[in-house]
Amino acid sequence: RKEMTAACTPRRRIINLTSVLSLQEEINEQGHEVLREMLHNHSFVGCVNPQWALAQHQTKLYLLNTTKLSEELFYQILIYDFANFGVLRLSEPAPLFDLAMLALDSPESGWTEEDGPKEGLAEYIVEFLKKKAEMLADYFSLEIDEEGNLIGLPLLIDNYVPPLEGLPIFILRLATEVNWDEEKECFESLSKECAMFYSIRKQYISEESTLSGQQSEVPGSIPNSWKWTVEHIVYKALRSHILPPKHFTEDGNILQLANLPDLYKVFERC
C-alpha cells in the first residue's frame, strides 16, 4: 500500500510523520478485503446518474454509490500519497476573496446577518489561508500566491479535474471546517474536505460537464463527458487505489441488486 500512486510524480518523498502513518493504519484496520476484491475485478455496466452506477462482479449485479466511493478513493490517495502530488495549474489565478464571496452568497454556506458582513468574512478567509499557504503547498500541492490567488490544485489521478463549480464552497470550508490546531486532526479533516471537493457530486455535474483533463479519443470531437470520466478514470482507479471500509457493506453505498443465475431462471419461465 505504501507504493500506491494514482498520479505520476517525478520522485517520491518518504513521509514518516506519526500522524500520517496513524491515518494510514486506520484505513488498513477499517478495510474490507472482500469489497476490495469485488472492486478490483468488477465489470463496469454503466452510470445511472452522477451519484449511482451499476457494476457486475462474477454472477452478481451491484449498485454502487459513485459519490461515496470516489470520496473515499480521493481521501485514501491523499493519505497514502501525502506530500507526493503533482499540481493542476489553473488556467488563470482565482482570487480567494472572490471565491469566498461566491460561497457566502450560496445558501449552502449557511451565512446569516449575525455572522457579520460577507466582505469582512471573505477578507478573513483570504488572510487565514495565506498564512497556511506554505503547508498547503508542501503537503497538498494546493498553491496560493502572495496576492491571495489560488493558482494550483493537487493532481490526485492523472487526467482528472475536480468539478470546479464546487471550488468556492471548498475554499470556505478549508477556513471553517478544518481542525487547524492538532496535526493528525488537521491532516485528516483537510484531506476529507479535499476528497469531498474532488468527489463526483450530482449538484455540480450536468450532462455537459467534463471532468477530464483530456479530449476524447476521436479527433475533432467534444470533450469527454462526465460519464466517460466516471467509467474510464474514476472506476479504473477504484480497481487498484481503494481499500473500501467495512461500513460500506452496511450503509447502502454498495448494494447487491441481483444474482444473475437467479434472473436467468426467471427469464426461462417467461
Rank of each mutant, 00 (worst) to 15 (best):
D98R: 07
E26Q: 11
N179L: 10
G213C: 14
I233L: 09
Y160M: 00
N84D: 05
Q215Y: 10
G166E: 03
E193A: 07
T5W: 05
L255V: 10
D158G: 10
F82C: 06
L104S: 03
E29V: 07
K227L: 04
E188Q: 10
F140Y: 10
E3D: 15
S141Y: 03
L23W: 02
L69F: 05
Y264H: 15
V161E: 14
E177S: 06
E165G: 12
K192A: 06
Y62D: 00
T112C: 15
Q58D: 12
E146S: 12
G166L: 02
T5P: 06
K130H: 08
S189M: 11
P93S: 07
E119V: 13
L90N: 03
H32L: 15
I169P: 11
T176W: 14
I77M: 04
E33G: 14
P223H: 11
N84F: 02
L61F: 06
C270G: 15
V178D: 00
V178I: 10
L69P: 00
G116Y: 11
F187L: 08
L255W: 05
N28R: 13
P162H: 01
L129F: 13
I144A: 03
L155R: 15
L172Y: 13
R12W: 12
T66S: 09
S240F: 10
V45N: 03
K246T: 15
I79T: 04
R89A: 15
E183F: 00
E108V: 09
C270F: 13
L156H: 00
E123I: 12
Q76A: 00
G86P: 07
E188G: 09
S91N: 11
L238R: 00
N159P: 03
T176D: 04
I144W: 03
T229H: 05
K246R: 14
L35M: 13
F85I: 05
E26C: 11
T67I: 03
N28T: 09
T229Q: 07
Y235K: 00
L39C: 04
E268D: 08
Q24E: 05
E127N: 10
I157F: 02
R12M: 11
T67W: 03
S91K: 15
Q215S: 13
E250R: 06
S206W: 08
N224A: 14
L21D: 04
V161W: 11
S225D: 13
T5D: 06
L121Q: 12
G116H: 06
E37V: 09
L172A: 10
D262G: 10
L136K: 00
G31S: 12
F170G: 01
L156D: 02
D98Y: 11
P163A: 13
V161R: 11
E231W: 02
P107F: 09
L211K: 07
S199N: 00
S106E: 13
M4S: 11
E146M: 09
E114T: 14
P168Q: 02
G252N: 15
S216W: 09
E268G: 07
E182G: 08
D115Q: 10
L96W: 02
A175T: 14
E29N: 11
M135P: 04
P154G: 01
A122R: 01
T249M: 13
L96E: 00
D262A: 06
Y75D: 00
I205S: 05
L238H: 01
F44Q: 01
C194R: 01
F97M: 14
H57R: 04
P245L: 03
R36L: 08
L142N: 00
N49V: 05
R269D: 13
Q56A: 15
E127H: 14
I171Q: 02
V218I: 11
I169Y: 12
Q56P: 01
L64F: 13
W52E: 00
Y139I: 04
Q58L: 11
L88W: 12
M38A: 09
V48G: 02
E119S: 11
R201T: 03
C270M: 12
E114W: 06
E29Y: 10
K132F: 03
I144R: 01
E193N: 06
V218K: 12
R173H: 07
T176S: 11
C186M: 07
V218P: 15
D98K: 10
G110R: 12
K265V: 04
L35E: 03
N28I: 13
T9V: 14
P162W: 01
Q51C: 07
L54H: 01
I151K: 11
R36A: 09
T9C: 09
E33T: 12
I233A: 10
E143K: 13
L35W: 06
L99F: 07
I222R: 14
N41H: 12
C8W: 08
E114C: 08
I233N: 06
G86F: 08
R269K: 08
R89T: 15
Y80D: 08
L90H: 02
K118I: 06
H40G: 10
I171R: 02
F187Y: 06
L243R: 13
I157L: 13
E231Y: 01
L156T: 03
K236A: 10
R173P: 01
N259E: 13
A103E: 03
E108Y: 12
L174A: 04
P93H: 08
I205H: 04
L104D: 00
Q256N: 06
N159Q: 13
L99N: 11
E268L: 04
K130A: 13
Y160C: 00
P154L: 01
G31M: 06
P10Q: 07
E193I: 07
K118N: 05
P95L: 09
D115H: 08
I14D: 11
L69D: 00
L129G: 01
G166H: 03
V20E: 01
